[in-house]
Structure formats: structure tokens, C-alpha cells
Design a protein around this nucleic acid. Sequence first.
DNA 1: TACAATACATCGGAATCTTATGTATTTTCG
DNA 2: CGAAAATACATAAGATTCCGATGTATTGTA
Lengths: 113, 113
Amino acid sequence: MIYSTELIKGTLKTIVLKLLADNKKMYGYEITQRVKELTFDKIQISEGALYPTLHALESEGLLVTEVEYIGKRVRKYYSLSPSGKSKSKEKLSELADFIETMKLLLDLKVKTA
Amino acid sequence: MIYSTELIKGTLKTIVLKLLADNKKMYGYEITQRVKELTFDKIQISEGALYPTLHALESEGLLVTEVEYIGKRVRKYYSLSPSGKSKSKEKLSELADFIETMKLLLDLKVKTA
DNA sequence: TACAATACATCGGAATCTTATGTATTTTCG
DNA sequence: CGAAAATACATAAGATTCCGATGTATTGTA
């Protein structure tokens, strides 16, 4: 099963921040592949979604970049800035909380009062 | 804590279908209030989001309506059509699956290989 | 040597929600 | 009693976010 794309909306920034919190530095393509692996292909981040998001996070001052050359190919590493680290924790606890709330909604057996 | 709005994106249809699966029939305003209650005010569905969604679900043939008058005030009840019932189950298991996947991503302690 | 994979990026358009606005009735509380 | 809040529907402009397509270029593989 691949999730209908709408479900993933709004979680991308959090996923990116979380991965970077766990992995010191990563580059864009690596992030897409890692997410694909970790979710058993259930979540596939498109590049058209990822790169704009990375740029946005960078311009918000949450990420910093360093460029590396692998042969002639450019590789752009992203890592968390100090404010990115706290933002990561923030977004993460918010998502964890949200998930618990959704579980409540999912499991609810509410009869009309 | 009220969730940043982006987090809720994409879950609204599923929430509506689930509520209607549990409650036979509900009207719009009731849905907003029920969600507010059940989530301890953490999720507040705006009317500008809800009504277009209800109309969309109806035009997809997933919901059927019946109008009732409470005094002079109109009340529009929505309930699941047969296809709405199966769609509800579908969306629900997708969301449940998605949540499990997100938990994996959240709890991951992945070191760079 | 062609194809797949790696690696960056942008862009038009679609989908979805926010915020504001509008109308009208009913209830509540000072 | 009268004003405000709650109930109940609805639309519409605009923002955000993502999809799908496209583009460029290098490297690995069969």
C-alpha cells in the first residue's frame, strides 16, 4: 500500500527535521531513499516536494548546508542549526501528540448521546 | 496545544467518514463540535473546511443527506451511502496504517550506516 | 552503450485549508 | 428585555503545500 498523497501533507517538514536530528547530516536524495527504506516503500517523498521544503527550512534558519563534491557531482548536505534542533523537538512532540489524538478518534465507539 | 493546521491536512475526509460510520447520521455543526470534544479542543474543524468537504463527499456519492427543520432553522443530516461505508473502512485502515508507519519514523534511532 | 541510478533543481497546476464574510434563528444571561 | 453567544447553513479569495512533469548532468551497471 502506498498512502494517498494527501495523508502525508503537513508531515514532511517534521520528517525531515527528525531525520536530521538522528543523522547529523544528510543530503536530499539520501532523505528520499531513507524514508522509502524506513517505511518499506509506503512513503515516497517526491523531489518536487522535498527540495522546496529543504530550501524553505534553510531560509527559516533551521538548516545549514555544506556542499561536497563526489567526483564531479555536487552533493549538498543539510544539518540542523541550533534553532533547528529545538524546532525538531517541538515539531516531533507535536506530531506524537497528534498521532495519539488521532488514535483516539480512530478507535472511538461513540453512540449518539 | 492546538495543532499547527498543516498537520491536520488530508485527514478531514477520513475523520468525517469515521464519525458517520459510528453515528449513523450527523449534521455539519455537530461534527465540528464532536471532533472538538473528542480531541479535547486539540482539533477544531473550521466550517470553511468542513462544508466544502461534505459537499464533495456527497457529490462523490459517499454521503446522502436529509433535511430536517428545527423550528425555522434548517438542519442537514449526512449519512453514509453503501459506497461510503466501504470507503470509510478503506480510508480508516489506510490512516491506521499510516499512523503506525509514522510511529516507526518517529521512534527511529538510525545511525548513519 | 544504453539504461538505471544518483543528484540537483524549477514550475504549472491541483488540492486543501484558512480567514473572512454573509444570512438567519435560537438560547442564554445580566 | 435586550444584547451577546451559540447554533446552523454557506461561499469565496487567497495561502500553502504537494504532485507530476521536466530539465540538466554524472556515475554505475548489464
